[in-house]
């Protein structure tokens, strides 16, 4: 399976983070103007069929689709960037593909803080929800029972 051997696990991680990032937040952290590029595939809205597994662990089945926008581009130095991002925001896909390309160049260190911010904000969102859920965890206690003599 190619999926288990990404050439660059770091690349998988930033592409995934960019796909999950809120589009408006990415736009504010990585604003226009974007560096010069040629579109290899203009941002294209489409769907991906999401699969589940029977019983959580068994055979796959088709659960339903989600909207996904993809984009591919080439920077002037020839570096190619790709993006597949959730939703229908073309600028989200364009920005993510640009970031993906730049992260493969010398510009990467300068962009790290942006990715770190997105990651930290995602962690904070998840932690907050998990903490609210944790507050609804049931503590059982057994009432004194009278029948045992």
């Amino acid at each position: 399976m190619p999926s288990s051997h990404p050439q660059d696990p770091d690349r998988k991680s930033w592409m995934s983070l960019l796909a999950r990032a809120p589009a408006d937040r990415l736009a504010s952290l990585f604003p226009d103007p974007l560096p010069d590029h040629t579109l290899l595939r203009a941002p294209e809205i489409g769907s991906v069929m999401v699969q589940g597994r029977i019983g959580g662990t068994g055979a796959p089945f088709n659960l339903g689709e989600m909207t996904v926008t993809r984009c591919s581009l080439r920077l002037t130095d020839g570096t190619v960037g790709h993006a597949y991002v959730q939703g229908r925001d073309r600028t989200h896909a364009l920005r993510a593909a640009t970031m993906d390309a730049l992260m493969q160049t010398d510009a990467a260190p300068a962009l790290r803080p942006t990715l770190d911010t997105l990651a930290a904000e995602e962690t904070a969102r998840r932690t907050t929800r998990a903490a609210k859920a944790a507050a609804t965890k049931v503590d059982f206690f057994t009432m004194v029972r009278g029948e045992d003599k």
Binding site: S3, E44, I45, G46, S47, V48, M49, V50, Q51, G52, R53, G56, T57, P60, N62, L63, E65, T67, V68, R70, Y84
Partner: peptide, 13 residues
């Protein structure tokens, strides 16, 4: 919508 593909089965665990 064009179909971009299908996902890996989601890991509900």
């Amino acid at each position: 919508l064009p179909r971009h593909g299908f996902s890996s089965p989601v890991e509900t665990a």
